[in-house]
Amino acid sequence: MIEIKNLHAKVEGNEILKGIELTINPGEIHAIMGPNGSGKSTLAKVIAGHPSYEVTAGEINFDINGKMVSILEQEPYERAKEGIFLGFQYPIEIPGVNNVGFLREAFNSICTHQGAKGMDQKEFKEFLKPKLELLEIDDSFLDRSVNEGFSGGEKKKNEILQMAVLNPKLSILDETDSGLDIDALKIVAKGVNSLKSKYTSTILVTHYQRLLNYIQPDFIHVLHDGKIIKSGGKELALELEAKGYDWLIK
């Protein structure tokens, strides 16, 4: 699905990523953990193509039509159209822009690119129904402005709703669990699990083990100072929970 080789990236002159190596196959869920400032969010943004981050070395190759292709030169929207989705740690408010209108616009843009037909308003509302139910989202949510005045939990749910609608090949969820109460966390996890398939992959960027009680990762990687310093199976999360990061870092 995605291959990251010796990835170096900097922002405002500071090198944050210092040689990331990561390969993710279709159907896998990978968790990226690590202390604050280790470069987790940067990695998520660099994969999605945030313009503030400059890739100084290395490669990111993504499966496009069965071929591994470098996406480093692609704009964020081009990556999104190929099936990369970034769930934001702090979703952005877009005042005055109708949530469902925006969602349909995005959906149609991606559909069209992938050779499918877009949906009109009515079809789209029908299409949304089961997704809203799954995520326990009220209809009124759709007519509000994108993220404007949303509570922290609502914003995160909105991210998951977008993910469910856009049906990406690779979902990157950046600290989606932060700021969520346990009920909201369960709903978000339900959303992520419902999208799991052997064709899609997920990267969970998280600070805490808590989310991993609800979403079972296949692999866990510990990021520190811009590098992956330890990788393992899901049991690694429990070990981290018990011992913290210090034993790995020193």
């Binding site: 964020p76 929207y77 970034l86 843009s109």
Partner: peptide
């Protein structure tokens, strides 16, 4: 960036 990352061009 937020809107672009949802597949919409600049």
């Amino acid at each position: 960036f937020y809107l672009q990352s949802r597949g919409l061009d600049m």
